[in-house]
Each structure stands twice: as structure tokens, then as C-alpha cells.
């Protein structure tokens, strides 16, 4: 129990960010028309590609001879980039089509 309280105490700012972000996330998309559900889901999909940052940190601090870490980190960077780039490009393609007609 003590360790949990300690964790909360040491990370209180992150926990504030966490709680506030939950509300922001809900608030921000609450008025979306259903026509935009697919692009929105796809855009959100690209945003959680932010996990790539973790992959870069893992990769960037892997020791030279530690092959498992190097290989797993390298894979993580590739997969994270795929999520980010693919996500944003697919979203843009969907939205491009909304723009053309008028």
C-alpha cells in the first residue's frame, strides 16, 4: 500500500495530466458528426503513435552489444513509425475526399 501512495505522490503532476486529459479527450470529440467518425478514429489512431517516442528512448539508450535490446528496439521504432506515418497519411486521404466536392 505504501508503495502505491509513494508512487502517486511522486507522480502527482502526471496523474493530474492523466485525469485532465481524460476529460479533454471526451470533451473534444463529443460533438463530432457521424460522417467524420472514420477519419476521427483514424486520426486518433495516428496520435497514439506517440508511443514511438518510447521506442526512440529505448533504442537510443540500448548498449552497443545488447543485441536483444537493439533488435527489439529497432523493431519498435519501425512499428511505431508505421503507426504514425500510415495513420496520418490514411486520415489525410480520407479527408481529401471530403474537400473536393462542393
Amino acid at each position: 500500500m505504501d508503495s502505491i501512495i509513494t508512487f502517486i505522490g511522486e507522480n502527482i503532476q502526471l496523474i493530474y495530466i492523466l485525469i485532465l486529459s481524460i476529460f479533454v479527450g471526451i470533451e473534444v470529440i463529443s460533438k463530432v458528426p457521424s460522417a467524420l467518425h472514420t477519419p476521427l478514429m483514424s486520426g486518433a489512431n495516428a496520435i497514439h503513435g506517440v508511443v514511438i517516442i518510447g521506442a526512440i528512448i529505448v533504442m537510443g539508450h540500448a548498449e552497443a552489444g545488447n543485441w536483444p535490446a537493439l533488435i527489439l528496439g529497432f523493431l519498435a521504432v519501425i512499428l511505431g513509425t508505421l503507426n504514425v506515418v500510415g495513420g496520418f497519411v490514411v486520415t489525410d486521404r480520407m479527408l481529401e475526399m471530403f474537400k473536393k466536392k462542393k
Partner: peptide, 26 residues
Amino acid sequence: AFGGFLYDNQVMLTGGILVGSAGTLL
């Protein structure tokens, strides 16, 4: 977002949680 906690990384936390909550609502 768990990665954000692990690395004390604010942008991972906000990005992840934003999608977590918006995605749940969707």
C-alpha cells in the same frame, strides 16, 4: 500512456490518454 508514466514523458501521456478517452467515448 503507460509508456508516458514509465518515462515521465508528458507528451506520451497526453497523446495516449487523449486517444484512450476519446476512443472509449467513440
